[in-house]
Amino acid sequence: MSAVAVWPRAHPRAFLGLAAMLWFVTYRSLAPLADALTNQLPISQNPRLADAVRFFLYDTPKVLLLLTGVVMVMGMVNSYFTAERTRVLLAGRREGVGNVLAAMLGIVTPFCSCSAVPLFIGFVQAGVPLGITLSFLIAAPMVNEVALTLLFGLFGFRVAALYLALGLSVAIVAGWIIGRLKMERHLEAWVRDMPQRTADTVHDTLTLGERLDAGFASVREIVGKVWPYVIVGILIGAGIHGYVPEDFMARLMGAEAWWSVPLAILIGVPMYTNAAGIIPIVEALLAKGAALGTVLAFMMSVIALSLPEMIILRKVLTVRLIATFVGIVTTGILLVGLIFNAVL
């Protein structure tokens, strides 16, 4: 192993300080660099194309840089929140308090739809109530660290904080309602019959260097997996930014259009992407006059109610329980969209 590869683990604090400084300098240089590159291209006679190209040249490195930074940091944070530790924290919690804790843990844990079934089974075996488990499974994809960081970087603290508060509210209230409905009987029989096991105490002995390794591993796994979605999302966003008239988006997805929020949810559910891929589209839609609540409802439906995740969860939940889950979460997202449109 080369000295360059060993140095970050041997001197993690120095590495993190230098990396943060380089990240900040690079991020600040993206806008003038995108402008300079666009001005060098022979497209000045086509303003729409120039706007689309500038959007792509600026947003591609910006989103990938934000994504890499937050995945690196959260990969280190996630080393404190393994699946077993999460089960330990939630096992034995009462409803209400447990729903709040589960939703908050969902923000900082690295689980996605592909891990929904094994995670769900582990929670059931640890004795975590169904409503609390679903609060976690709603919050984990919908109010994740990538969505929050990208929203903060693109739209500022106010939008990110509102999204966090309302997204958590959806996860907490939806899980609490499902818990109150006592729908454990609508789990698949093989899940109900599994023997419960004790959630043992988990000891943490990782060093900062090992947590840094966990951050690098997260970057390789997550960024390596989602970058094609990011590029596709930015290409779509560039097309919207350059070629879609502002008055068209204002009419279709503006706050005055009463149908815009339910329509956005209906469009979003069949789609399959992630926060990193959808947020460039969100940015372009907002720039063209779409209402913030409508666009966020679209984003939340894509990443919290994706059809692939429902298909995966069908392995452990009956159709009736999935329908209840979808109905409650959809209602919550609808209210979030309407509230955003009303207050902003």
Rank of each mutant, 00 (worst) to 15 (best):
I265T: 02
G289M: 11
F340P: 05
R180E: 13
W227N: 03
S301N: 03
F120S: 00
G127T: 06
R314H: 08
S2A: 03
T207L: 07
V146T: 08
P270L: 01
A264W: 05
T26A: 14
M104W: 11
P118I: 05
A189H: 12
I265K: 07
I339C: 09
I138R: 02
R9S: 15
L64S: 09
P32F: 04
F155Y: 14
G106M: 03
R251T: 10
S135Y: 03
L252F: 13
I177C: 02
M249S: 12
V128S: 00
R220S: 04
D51I: 13
P228S: 03
V77R: 11
V226N: 04
I234A: 01
G237A: 03
R13V: 13
E145V: 04
I178R: 00
V219D: 09
T330W: 12
V25M: 12
I234V: 12
S79Q: 15
A189E: 11
P129S: 13
A20F: 14
L252G: 05
A19R: 13
I172Q: 06
Q45I: 02
Y58L: 15
N144P: 07
R314I: 06
P141H: 05
H241C: 10
M142Y: 06
L338I: 13
T205M: 11
L57A: 06
G92E: 10
T149D: 13
A103D: 05
S113H: 12
D213M: 05
F24Y: 09
I177Q: 00
A255K: 14
P61N: 10
L130R: 01
I311E: 12
A323G: 15
W176P: 02
G242E: 09
S79N: 14
F155P: 02
S44Y: 06
A275Y: 11
V170D: 03
M76H: 11
R93G: 01
E184I: 04
V219S: 10
F120A: 00
G209E: 05
L286Y: 12
K225Q: 07
D200G: 12
I303V: 15
S115K: 09
L57F: 08
I107Q: 06
I265N: 07
P47E: 10
M253V: 12
I178V: 05
I311R: 15
T133E: 01
V159T: 14
F15P: 11
S2M: 02
A342L: 15
V53I: 13
Y243E: 03
L181P: 04
R211A: 01
S260F: 02
T82K: 09
H203P: 00
G327F: 05
K315C: 01
V97T: 15
F123P: 06
F56M: 15
L134S: 02
V73D: 10
G69H: 14
F325P: 03
A31K: 14
M76L: 15
V63E: 08
P245H: 02
G233T: 07
P245A: 15
